[in-house]
């Protein structure tokens, strides 16, 4: 029983990371109707920037927050320079552009930093903490804490600020938003910036576990896709719940279904995507898309 609890709790910690990347995917999907396949690689690249700063002797948290700022600006610039020109192109074109971005970030990271796996420091110690029958590490608690804090800040931003409200309005009805004076294209750029920022946080949190290398996010991105699909691609809250569920599910399946182990972990995520699309395509919390004809 306590082993089960143990797995659930450490699953919630990785789940927080999935939740963040899933939220980043949903933010861009809602605003533009397109899945950003480069989300993971953008996070990976940000993490490399943090690594560079830390290696240059910067204190961890200074590097952490500087990276967040750079990621945000980078996200805005990507939207302005690369996405904007294809904004009105068919969905497939934009998808190809984001896949192109994925490849570019991946190769550039490999070119600059090589493909050698690098350790990435964690701000949290691995000291164990006893919570009743279960033992968790400070590391797990810290990662979960940072993820949850990011999600709460996002929630606050979207629910309680004027700009957050405007961004939600743009998602619902771009024309009406323009008619009340919202600068829609600025909001889209802001959405990319926020998604890049949230992704960067997740990248820096997960890097100590998976180690830093250009492909470090590929598995995580697939789990994040599964999270967003499970929760509902048009529901930010659903994506978060989906992320936590996926984290727990990953751990439980890895522990109790022995033939899956670590080798078939990705298959679990893909199976979740497939099952969700078969049973409830809009996800647990998503709304089915209604198109008036």
């Amino acid at each position: 029983m306590s082993a089960l609890l143990q797995q659930v709790i450490s699953g919630l910690s990785t789940g927080g990371i999935y939740a963040n990347i899933a939220l980043a995917l949903v933010l861009i999907y809602q605003a533009t109707g397109v899945v950003n396949f480069a989300q993971g690689e953008m996070a990976m690249f940000s993490t490399y920037l943090a690594w560079t700063m830390i290696n240059a002797g910067w204190p961890y948290w200074l590097a952490f927050f500087t990276t967040m700022v750079i990621a945000f600006v980078g996200g805005v610039v990507i939207e302005r320079v690369i996405i904007r020109p294809v904004e009105n192109a068919p969905v497939l074109t934009i998808v190809m552009v984001t896949i192109g971005l994925l490849t570019i970030f991946n190769s550039v990271a490999g070119w600059i930093y090589t493909y050698t796996v690098k350790p990435f420091p964690s701000p949290f110690s691995s000291a164990p903490i006893k919570l009743g029958p279960v033992t968790v590490s400070m590391q797990e608690v810290g990662v979960a804490g940072v993820s949850v804090a990011t999600l709460i800040l996002m929630y606050f931003f979207f629910q309680h600020t004027k700009v957050g409200l405007a961004m939600r309005a743009v998602v619902e009805n771009p024309t009406s938003s323009r008619l009340v004076g919202v600068k829609v294209s600025q909001m889209l750029a802001l959405g990319w910036g926020l998604a890049a920022l949230v992704g960067a946080v997740a990248g820096m949190m997960v890097a100590p576990l998976v180690f830093l290398e250009p492909n470090m996010m590929s598995g995580i991105l697939i789990y994040a896709f599964a999270s967003a699909t499970l929760g509902g691609f048009n529901s930010p809250g659903g994506a978060v719940v989906g992320g936590l569920l996926m984290g727990v599910l990953e751990n439980l399946v890895g522990t109790y279904i022995t033939f899956i182990g670590t080798e078939l972990k990705l298959t679990v995520a893909l199976a979740v995507i497939l099952l969700t699309l078969l049973v409830k395509p809009s996800g647990l919390f998503g709304r089915a898309a209604v198109t008036r004809v």
Partner: peptide, 15 residues
């Protein structure tokens, strides 16, 4: 052209 998933008050604040 209202925003159906936003509350009435949020719609008004957007105005």
């Amino acid at each position: 052209g209202t925003f159906p998933n936003l509350t009435v008050l949020e719609n008004l604040r957007l105005g």
